[in-house]
Each structure stands twice: as C-alpha cells, then as structure tokens.
Simulated assay, not measured.
Amino acid sequence: MNVLYTAKARATGGRDGRATSLSGHPDLALKPPAAMGGPADQGEATNPEELFALGYGACFLSALSLIARQQKISAKHFAIDTAVSIGSDDKGGFGLAVELHGDMPDVEREKAAELMRTAHTVCPYSKATQGNIEVRLFLDGEEL
C-alpha cells in the first residue's frame, strides 16, 4: 500500500475514558451507552460505535461521491445514514453489524443501487470489514 496519510490517536480508560487524536482535536470523553450499563445522561460523551458510524459514513459517502462524479452524476446532495450495532456473538465475545442507508435525491433507484454497490467495493472501511462483520446497504428503507 502506498500510504497517503496516517491518523494517530490515543485512548485511555476504555469505554469510560477519553479518545484524543495526536493533533489534540478531537478530544472526546467516552462513556458506554445506557444500553450497555452506562449513564442515562451521556452528556457530551460518545462511544466507539458512534465514532465508527461517523467514520464509516463519511468514508462511504466519499467513495459514493467519487463513483458518481466519474459517471457525471452530481453528488452534491447525497447523504449516508449509518447505524452501527454491537452485540454478543456465539463465541462469548462481541461483534458489530453495520447498515448504510443511502439518500441520493434526483437519482433513479436502479442507478442509485448501482452506485451504492460500487462504492461498497471502493470504500476502505467496506474493504476492511468485508468478511468480518455484516454490512447491509439500503435505499429508501429497502435493503439492496
């Protein structure tokens, strides 16, 4: 791989601690969600699943926009809603599942589905998760 950029961060305290990038921004408080024993009031804290959802959604949207632009389709109003779920697996540990919901106004459904599927082969997050976690693609609430 020809490295273009390396992000560096430090986490302390696990799910009840802090996560800070080497540059100092962001510097985030971490709390487990209430569903996993955390406080009902999270304040301004986040958790690893929210951070993963933010990163995956942004990365996938970038890949989707690239594919659209290559086909002379404006991606100016595209959006991705991302859901990251955590749960126990059958091996006594935990696993993740992801849903990527595409919003592509003014793009025909078949073309939008094609763009989503192609972006899924280009996005680095999709490549990294392939075969490791379930990733489901959606358009208009329907799974592709």
Score class of each variant (00 low, 15 high):
R117Y: 00
T82R: 06
S126M: 01
P105G: 09
P39H: 05
L51W: 02
F78S: 00
F94C: 06
E143R: 14
A9M: 11
T12K: 11
T46P: 05
E50Q: 13
L96K: 02
L96Q: 05
T129L: 10
M116W: 01
D140V: 09
A83E: 14
H25Q: 14
E50G: 01
P48W: 00
L144R: 02
E108D: 15
L54Q: 14
F60A: 04
A53D: 00
E142A: 12
C123G: 01
L100T: 00
L66G: 11
H120Y: 03
E50R: 10
L144D: 01
A119V: 02
G38C: 06
G14Q: 01
K72W: 08
R109Y: 02
L51V: 04
P39G: 09
A45L: 02
N2L: 14
P39I: 02
D41T: 07
E114V: 12
Y5Q: 10
K91G: 08
A7I: 11
G93V: 04
E143D: 08
P48L: 05
V3L: 12
G43H: 03
V84T: 03
A11D: 04
M1Y: 05
G14H: 02
R18D: 09
L96A: 08
G141K: 03
S74G: 10
V122Q: 10
Q71H: 13
L51S: 00
S62F: 00
K91S: 14
P124I: 00
A113I: 14
E142P: 07
A34C: 09
G92C: 06
E50S: 03
V84M: 06
R69H: 10
A68W: 01
C123I: 07
S74F: 03
G24E: 05
E49C: 06
T118A: 14
G24Q: 07
E44I: 13
L22D: 15
